[in-house]
């Protein structure tokens, strides 16, 4: 075996070991690497009230309500199976509206609702001009999946009017 060949094998074996080790570590920390929990995961394994968590899902259509006279709002975050009440007071991102993906950071109160300290809008992987959306809606091809249909139902940006 030449020295070049030996170095080649050393590099290959080293890279394979490294990849396996990284895979095992990432797998072990899987629960800590997710950015948010879904309402289903919260329903299955409720976190302790008061602990900071992030909840992700869609803002349920028709659930967005204004509270009092200030900028306070309540809405439901849903993943299709379970939903979770969220209360929030503060500035909302541009993309926030009913039917839109959202990540809410905060702590659960005693009633099991999330009191959010920050709201982040989650953008999906679809990009298209408004005319295309209008054409798709006209031809009835728009409702291809849940998120899209939810977006279409909330074409009027409710978040802006708040």
């Amino acid at each position: 075996m030449t020295r070049k060949r030996r170095r080649l094998y050393m590099v290959i074996v080293g890279m394979v070991c490294l990849a396996v080790a990284t895979g095992l570590v990432l797998n072990a920390f899987n629960q800590d690497l997710v950015f948010f929990y879904s309402p289903s995961e919260v329903a299955k394994k409720p976190p302790t009230p008061g602990r900071m968590i992030r909840i992700g899902g869609l803002v349920e259509t028709g659930s967005l309500k204004r509270v009092g006279v200030g900028p306070g709002i309540v809405f439901k975050v849903t993943d299709g199976k379970f939903d979770l009440n969220v209360a929030y007071t503060g500035v909302l991102p541009d993309l926030f509206r009913e039917g839109q993906g959202v990540v809410a950071e905060g702590a659960l109160d005693q009633s099991g609702a999330l009191v959010a300290s920050q709201i982040l809008a989650k953008h999906d992987e679809k990009y298209m001009p408004p005319e295309v959306v209008a054409a798709l809606k006209k031809s009835g091809q728009w409702r291809e999946n849940e998120a899209a249909s939810a977006n279409a139902a909330a074409a009027m940006p409710v978040g802006k009017s708040l």
Partner: peptide, 19 residues
Amino acid sequence: WNTLHQPASVVRMGGPTID
């Protein structure tokens, strides 16, 4: 993992989701 960043739009199964 679920992330705030959106999934791939161009190089993905089923073709790009960008108009």
